[in-house]
Design a protein around this nucleic acid. Structure first.
Lengths: 257, 257
DNA sequence: ACAAAAGTGTTACTTTTACACCCATGA
DNA sequence: TCATGGGTGTAAAAGTAACACTTTTGT
């Protein structure tokens, strides 16, 4: 199938198969080589990158649409996915933006085509295990790759704003929920977990205080193994105690009152 | 204007003036006689109550639609309004639900009328000063009144779920933002503020510890007056230090890391 | 043997909790 | 005068922050 055929199919079938005026955009976070990463896509002809997003089926729950986008891009099913904000300004939709793309593809759309109308988008952020992901371009976007959170390129439309808001939401989540299960491999070391927190918060934490605090949550199991093949002293491996981790997700951690 | 004329106008003009498939619902909180209240509306013919909600203009920001609903029901302009969740299950929309209403009004709508389609709704919660509000029924709902949060009647569709989620979001907000400016009169006493917290959290707090903690935020000014006309010792009056209050809104309070 | 990273412990400081006493007022 | 609610303080406990020494391992 040629690429613009699939675009054509979307443009034709969309009107009857998709919910109008509403979309989802996903900020997919991963963690690799001690850096927080975000998965971005690039469309042909376009010089800017974008968050992976999609439309919502007429009978599809909005959350399911976000899960579908995630599955398409990462191949993963069970991931932490969290709706965090709706972006509902009329100004965020730009007709010319799509028209330029279509022009380059030699596709004609009528001026009142559904895809040119204003779109409200629901922002989701996801936490995934980097090593389990094989970024999949799919049929429409040309590229789909991880970007270091500190080196994100220029993004289309208001996607930079969406990304920033997702990061803020993720930081907020650290204050009342455990994190890491969906970002780290099954077995990980304390310094790795700490680095994850430091990267998200963009600040240094004290090694010993971090360990005490995080162990205090009671969501970790120290295994009887140490990391192999590392320079210097081998750190212990830990895994999450799923049951207690889920309890903490539900009950919250640092609640103030 | 007869009431069902305005419904008729909405049904006719909606298709071209409104964003399809998307609505807003507002959980409007107030505080009165030491009780947390929520503003509910009731439509004619319907035996259940509902959250005040509305549709979104074709060129209207979603936030503006929520502000408009609030203005319509409370008469208030400047209030704390916060988007908190999107409810996007297809099952939440029930065709029969609207059809029954229209039937009772003698209105005929076609089976594929826009109002019968699936709606995704954006939940907002608002905090308003009870005494400044004169609940306005407007043309479509028959009644619009305050309900004690503990005595909320049966609500339509998934509105109970929306209300519960709003309350959870409000409780969460207490953990990292100050609250009270939009719920209390300009001048208020410490016991009143405490009662507000206790009501939202649905739990008792220690009088002295509460005072110490809340004063520690540095967002209050103690005035040189005491409450008059009260039994027993007259409590001091306080007001919020707007500048510091806003700083606290932006920077957060109890952040954990 | 040494540099670099990880394990562990201690102390000072801050915040939270629990609780007691005095004061003002209307009945 | 007394019951009730409000103002204020203090001591113990818990939690946080700052910091030092020892252990392991590859080079």
């Amino acid at each position: 199938m040629k690429k613009n055929e699939s675009i054509g199919a979307l443009l034709t079938a969309g009107e009857q198969d998709l919910l109008p005026a509403l979309s989802v955009d996903c900020v997919i976070f991963g963690f690799h080589e001690n850096q927080l990463k975000v998965l971005l896509v690039k469309h042909r002809h376009r010089d800017m990158w974008a968050l992976p997003g999609g439309f919502i089926g007429k009978e599809e729950p909005t959350d399911a649409a976000a899960y579908r986008v995630l599955k398409e891009r990462t191949g993963l099913n069970e991931i932490f996915l969290q709706q965090f904000h709706v972006f509902g300004e009329p100004e965020r939709s730009k007709k010319e933006f799509h028209l330029q793309d279509f022009k380059k593809d030699g596709i004609n759309v009528t001026a009142n085509h559904w895809i040119l109308q204003r779109f409200v988008t629901i922002g989701y952020y996801a936490l995934v295990e980097f090593s389990k992901v094989s970024p999949a371009s799919g049929s429409i976007p040309e590229k789909c790759v991880w970007w270091d959170i500190h080196k994100v390129p220029t993004l289309i439309l208001d996607h930079r704003k969406i990304l920033d808001k997702a990061l803020a939401a993720l930081r907020m989540q650290l204050n009342y929920q455990p994190i890491g299960y969906n970002l780290l491999p099954k077995k990980f070391t304390m310094p790795e977990l700490q680095k994850l927190y430091e990267t998200i918060l963009d600040k240094k934490l004290d090694r010993r205080n971090f360990q005490r605090k995080i162990l205090g949550f009671g969501i970790l199991c120290r295994l009887d193994e140490t990391k192999e093949g590392v320079a210097h002293k081998a750190p212990y491996l830990y895994s999450f105690d799923l049951k207690k981790y889920d309890d903490a997700l539900n009950d919250g951690l640092n609640l103030g009152w």
